[in-house]
């Protein structure tokens, strides 16, 4: 049992690390601000959850576990708010999302 839990937590930690790097690579590769937001939210959600749950399994006292859960909930609750504030501010300042050419007409109608 102990061994299985250890393997699960290692997997979660390493895979969470991989997702962290993926999000950062997306942050560098994606072409404009709005698409970069999507890459950033990968790190904010699943990567954070995986690393913190991996630590949760390793934690020895329940006080530490409760704190880990609180950190996770806090990050999950605040990241959409911060993201929404960023997008609102960017749109407000006149930043336009880069869209494929042929779809331009339907976008104008949609807004």
């Amino acid at each position: 049992m102990e061994g299985i839990l250890n393997i699960v937590s290692w997997f979660l930690l390493v895979f969470g690390g991989f997702l962290c790097i993926s999000g950062a690579v997306g942050l560098l590769r994606f072409p404009d601000f709005f698409t970069r937001m999507h890459a950033a939210s990968v790190t904010d959600t699943l990567a954070t959850a995986m690393i913190l749950i991996g630590l949760f399994i390793q934690a020895e006292s329940w006080l530490v576990q409760v704190k880990l859960v609180m950190v996770l909930l806090f990050v999950l609750l605040t990241s959409p708010t911060a993201g929404h504030a960023l997008v609102m501010a960017a749109l407000h300042a006149g930043l336009e999302p880069v869209l494929p050419k042929q779809k331009q007409a339907s976008v104008e109608a949609g807004r």
Partner: peptide, 18 residues
Amino acid sequence: VVRRIWQFGLKLNPAIES
């Protein structure tokens, strides 16, 4: 999203709609 990040030659089709 992760699949799109690592694919060769970024094939994105972003859209904004209400």
